Amino acid sequence: MAHAPFGKMDDGATVNEIRLGAGALGLSILTHGARIHGLTFQGRPRVLGFANIADYLTHAVYAGAVAGRYANRIAGGRFSLDGKSYQLPCNERGRTHLHGGMRGFAHRNWDIVEADDTHVTLTLVSPDGEEGYPGTLQTYCTYSLDGNDVRITLTATTDAPTIINLATHSYFNLDGSGDILGHRLTIPADHYLPVDDDLIPTGAIADVSGTAFDFRTPTAVGARGQRYDHNFVLSKERQSEPRLAASLEGPQSRTRLDVLSTEPGLQFYDGGYLAGGGFGAHGGLCLEPQVFPNAPNEPGFSKATLRPGETYRQVTLYRFSEI
């Protein structure tokens, strides 16, 4: 395990980089956003990352970060909990609350709890009222390497009822260059969530059959000319153990990534807007296990509430292999 300063945040806080390695995997983690800065398999890069902290601070594409306190979108930044209404900042076009707001978890510098050659645990305290959220939230993120698996364990506790939805936000490009439109994607989901013009789910849970959202068999990302920033329904609620959420194949590198997770939903973003974020359009894609977007405002969606005495727990695995 190598541990060294990577740069400084605007407030002067030092951002540290932790490098892990085991077998065919190499992993670089930054304390800023508890993010995956670099991920290699068989010596080749598999995710997008910036070369310096200034670019991470400038480009709001959440590359490799843990998004929260509520990842994805909340309509109008409003929700109600136990009869009380809350207003969160609308940091996306002034219309939606995205990835926890202006000081969401992706923009915070996490503390290192422990680290060795194959794992690191980081923690972050989000105080009551931060970004408008109720309750003080203590969150832990552990990255560990085991064989060809990167295992990500996210846990959190609160001292008052709150909402939480954490998501890992790496941009994958298994070939290490070019775009991902030729990558073959499989998502074992029979349903997805249609969205409105603000990318907020309409509340409907739609069948993928006969649509551009049917990825139940391997399909090239760019095969249908569809833009993707949608949530796929894997189950009604969080599972106790990870199960397959998606598979991705790089045509040039002949590499396969299986994403396994406990989460009920999977956000698939094709990276179509990355041209304005420091990378090329479709330079990478995101596969983000999570609770459904806007779930606090949709009674029919999966639970997003966390109460004192409960522990939020998400486990996601990135499993690599050669085709």
Rank of each mutant, 00 (worst) to 15 (best):
P194Y: 05
D197W: 03
N231R: 01
E288R: 12
F79N: 12
G178F: 06
Q267M: 13
L137M: 14
G38S: 11
I18F: 13
Y273V: 11
V113H: 03
V47R: 04
L317P: 01
D179L: 02
S144I: 03
F292E: 09
F268Q: 08
K303D: 14
I74C: 06
G43Q: 06
T311C: 03
F268T: 08
F320S: 04
R35Y: 03
P89Q: 12
K8L: 07
Y318W: 15
D55S: 10
D82R: 13
T186I: 12
G265K: 02
S80G: 13
L260K: 11
L88M: 04
G94N: 08
Y143K: 06
Y140N: 15
L154N: 04
Y228N: 05
A60P: 06
R184N: 04
G283I: 06
A4F: 13
L81Y: 13
H99G: 10
F213Q: 03
I164L: 12
Y70T: 09
L199N: 11
G210A: 10
H107E: 14
H99T: 06
L174R: 02
N294P: 03
T162G: 04
A65V: 01
T202V: 11
S240L: 13
H59V: 10
V233D: 00
L57K: 15
D175F: 08
E241L: 15
R307H: 04
S209T: 15
N91P: 05
I18Q: 03
T157E: 15
R95H: 12
P242H: 08
C141D: 00
S321H: 03
L98P: 03
E298C: 05
T211N: 08
T202M: 04
T305D: 09
G178L: 12
S253T: 11
G77M: 04
G49M: 02
P45H: 10
D207M: 06
N52H: 12
R69H: 09
Q42L: 04
G33S: 07
L248T: 03
R19H: 09
A156V: 05
L25K: 07
Y56C: 02
G101A: 00
R35H: 01
R184E: 15
L124T: 00
R319T: 09
T14C: 05
R227I: 15
T31A: 05
P45N: 08
T202P: 09
L285Q: 02
G12M: 05
G101M: 01
T142L: 14
S235R: 11
R46F: 00
Q42A: 14
V47P: 10
L257T: 00
G132A: 03
E114M: 02
F213E: 06
A246R: 01
V221T: 11
P45L: 11
Q87P: 05
V15M: 12
D55Y: 01
V125M: 07
N297E: 05
A4C: 09
P264G: 05
N231W: 01
I323M: 09
T157P: 02
E17G: 05
G64T: 11
V221F: 07
I152D: 00
F320N: 07
G276Y: 04
I152F: 00
I163L: 06
Y133P: 05
T40A: 12
L48E: 08
N16C: 04
G101Q: 00
Y133R: 09
D197S: 14
A275P: 06
V150L: 15
A156Y: 02
